[in-house]
Design a protein around this nucleic acid. Structure first.
Lengths: 204, 204
DNA sequence: GTCTATATGCGGATAGAC
DNA sequence: GTCTATCCGCATATAGAC
């Protein structure tokens, strides 16, 4: 890890707990182990550190959507072919995978916290937070459940309503347990109950 | 409104957008229309302003739970008697009332935003936020749906799972639209669809 | 209870030696 | 690319006049 990367990493950690305003350049420099003045050889301002974090996040999200099995729009058919064979256990596992990824991925989980803190102050941060946690998940799952209903895996129902019932418990549990480390087991138990009920309701 | 009350009111407005650290005593004094030094005749420190806001919130929440028709634990029977006659339209209206109250009540809505911003920094703020938005709603609705199932209004199902399916869409929509003023109509439309589906699933 | 003036320290940022 | 030294503005908070 270069010094520049370590600055970004420590800054993200600090911003995600103390917020942008609440974190001083000296805080970041201390965490990295250099003097605050040295930091200005790598970034011309504190704001530029934040901008770089946002850019890094955008890349990370793209990489992850690919690696994560959230296929691009043009590849939905392939996804349906996979999910068409989903049974209850698979659906439970899928939901837990999403939840655990958001809660535990070292970049995403810190960005979740920073997004919450900065949402009313920093539009560039909030736009990305909104897209990732409030829009894309619902959009993707809406399409997914639409296709799965067509494929007679699930009954016919409003797919966006289904997506909301699938995703909003995950979102709520993220809020509740992002600040309650060490209780993920409890969260996963609750999530599993929700998904089993979801499957019971919508399975063909 | 006394000067002291105006200080609390303006401080809450500023904290709920800029955060505690991001708001200076001068910001608050300017909003009130006095000099920052004068403010120290009313509060001995900036921290004491925050403490007073938390106390004020606690009182406000108690008052509201009473006025709002969320009966105390010892009064659940009376609530069930009312809700036992609930039809689909009543349930839709009930959910909209909760959502709109959280989003529009001038104290609660600012506390929602402040709680989001301060959750990782300020335990006294977060404890109250957690109780109000993450715990009490679920606890109360769990009891309610348990009783409504017993009363044959709703089918037998895990009442906490039902409470989650009723409340988590409200919570998600609060997150999404607390930062998207002027689009409440859209949120209410989505909420209505969720609740109609909820009723379809669980009605006897 | 408001004001002006001020103490003291921390914030972001720059200059220049090594 | 790291350091020491420094600038300057803003932060919280206090003293004391009116």
């Amino acid at each position: 890890m270069t010094t520049k990367e370590r600055i970004i990493d420590e800054a993200l950690s600090l911003f995600s707990v103390k917020g942008y305003k609440g974190t001083s350049v000296k805080n970041i420099a201390d965490a990295v182990g250099i003097k605050d003045s040295s930091l200005y050889k790598h970034f011309k301002s504190k704001q530029q550190i934040l901008d770089t974090i946002v850019e890094t996040m955008q890349k990370h999200i793209e990489d992850m959507s690919n690696a994560f099995g959230l296929p691009a729009d043009d590849n939905l058919e392939a996804a349906v072919a996979v999910y068409a064979r989903f049974d209850e256990a698979d659906l439970v596992q899928f939901s837990k995978k999403i939840f655990t990824f958001y809660l535990k991925d070292s970049i995403i989980s810190r960005f979740w916290r920073m997004g919450n803190i900065e949402q009313y102050q920093n539009p560039e941060v909030y736009d990305l937070f909104r897209k990732l946690f409030l829009e894309d998940s619902i959009t993707y799952q809406t399409k997914l459940f639409m296709e799965m209903s067509k494929a007679n895996v699930f009954i016919e129902a409003n797919p966006r309503v289904m997506a909301m019932y699938f995703y909003t418990p995950i979102y709520f549990l993220l809020s509740k347990y992002s600040n309650d480390v060490g209780h993920e087991a409890e969260a996963l138990k609750i999530l599993e109950e929700q998904v089993r009920e979801f499957y019971r309701i919508y399975k063909c």
